[in-house]
């Protein structure tokens, strides 16, 4: 295959994790760059929020970057995703421009949703992101519908449906998985299990040990991966995408991960310990682990990694500046786009 880390000998590469066998160096470094971009975007958004430049609320996915990026690595631009209230990472991983995302958070006309959606409805249809969703489980049946279109119109697209552990107890989850399975649709259900639906742990909310166990009820493969290891996530996604493109139907992937920040800006973090949070941040951080591998396998030098961080910071600064100077929507545009044509 053309997509291998060509600097290495065949016998050296055979034992390497999946992505190092599957992707070119450039793609591997681009994935790292996007993971940094996701984290710095969210840190930048948080700073802007603290300074009163962004209103409302936001749900940060800091700590979950490998699941967003790993799932999107095997996708092409035409493939589609549905996302969640914690969806900034999905949006960036699928190819959105952080300039227009910041502009949306600032409520500006240049934002992806012309300032009408904000963080919770961030979308970039041009890169296949059909939108984050403010309703837990709201995107699940919609993803199945998008996959139905792909199958009916033979577009060859696959659809990835991101959702959190909280959504797996919504009726929509069960209805969506069942329909995807009976109609063998090209959809991949990706549960980002960060351990808590707001404050309620999966142990307290969910009758099965793993969300992926529920795949058995809908006759589809249920795959559990360490959601903080990019290669593991990308490998599971790759297999599910191939299966979907072959017409063999859906897969449920469960990425075990963790969010460092609270559920939203109102969270006092009283349902988990500081030790637990510190353990994840210190020992299981997805970016640190990926960078360590890139160094270990000789794919990049520490100078090169530093350069990536620097270029990400520049992009973030430029994005915030773009948002600041972009125009506010006109008040008389309040009713724009309630309907496609004015009634």
């Amino acid at each position: 295959m053309s997509g291998r880390a060509r600097a290495m000998q065949v016998e050296e590469t055979s034992n390497l994790p999946f992505i190092y066998r599957q992707y070119e160096r450039e793609q591997l470094l681009d994935a790292l760059r996007k993971m940094h971009l996701i984290r710095r975007f969210e840190e930048g958004a948080e700073e802007c929020y603290m300074r009163g430049l962004i209103h409302g609320t936001m749900h940060l996915s800091i700590g979950q970057e490998a699941s967003a990026m790993g799932i999107c690595m095997p996708l092409v631009n035409e493939d589609q995703i549905t996302s969640t209230h914690r969806g900034h990472g999905h949006c960036i991983a699928k190819g959105a421009d952080v300039k227009r995302m910041f502009a949306e958070f600032f409520g500006k006309t240049t934002g992806y949703c012309a300032g009408r959606g904000g963080s919770m409805h961030i979308a970039d249809v041009s890169t296949g992101n059909l939108g984050a969703n403010g309703i837990v489980g709201g995107g699940l049946p919609i993803a199945v519908g998008a996959a139905l279109t792909a199958k009916r119109l033979r577009t060859g697209k696959v659809v990835v449906c991101f959702f959190g552990d909280g959504a797996n107890n919504e009726g929509a989850f069960h209805e969506a998985l069942n329909m995807a399975a009976i109609w063998k649709l090209p959809v991949i259900f990706v549960c980002e299990n960060n351990g808590y639906g707001m404050s309620t742990s999966t142990e307290r909310s969910t009758a099965v040990a793993n969300v992926a166990d529920r795949a058995a009820a809908y006759s589809m493969p249920g795959v559990i991966v360490d959601g903080n290891v990019l290669s593991e996530v990308a490998e599971a996604s790759h297999e599910a995408v191939e299966r979907a493109r072959r017409g063999d139907g859906p897969t449920l992937i469960e990425c075990k991960t963790y969010r460092y920040r609270g559920h939203s800006k109102s969270d006092r973090n009283r349902y988990r310990t500081k030790d637990e949070i510190d353990d994840w941040m210190t020992n299981r951080d997805p970016i640190k682990r990926y960078e360590a591998q890139l160094l270990e396998f000789g794919i990049a030098t520490s100078d090169e990694l530093e350069a990536i961080r620097g270029s990400v910071q520049q992009e973030i600064d430029a994005g915030i500046e773009f948002a600041k100077v972009s125009p506010m929507p006109a008040i008389d545009g309040l009713a724009d786009n309630v309907y496609t044509f004015e009634a």
């Binding site: 589609q80 549905t82 059909l130 709201g138 699940l140 049946p141 919609i142 993803a143 199945v144 519908g145 998008a146 996959a147 139905l148 279109t149 792909a150 009916r152 119109l153 577009t155 009726g171 929509a172 069960h174 209805e175 969506a176 069942n178 329909m179 009976i182």
Partner: peptide, 26 residues
Amino acid sequence: PDRVMDTPISELGGAGVAVGAAVTGL
């Protein structure tokens, strides 16, 4: 049957599938 589709008894999911299908081209 591909164009006159029986859905399971899943009103929420069925409606959502119709929404997703409409947004993407059906």
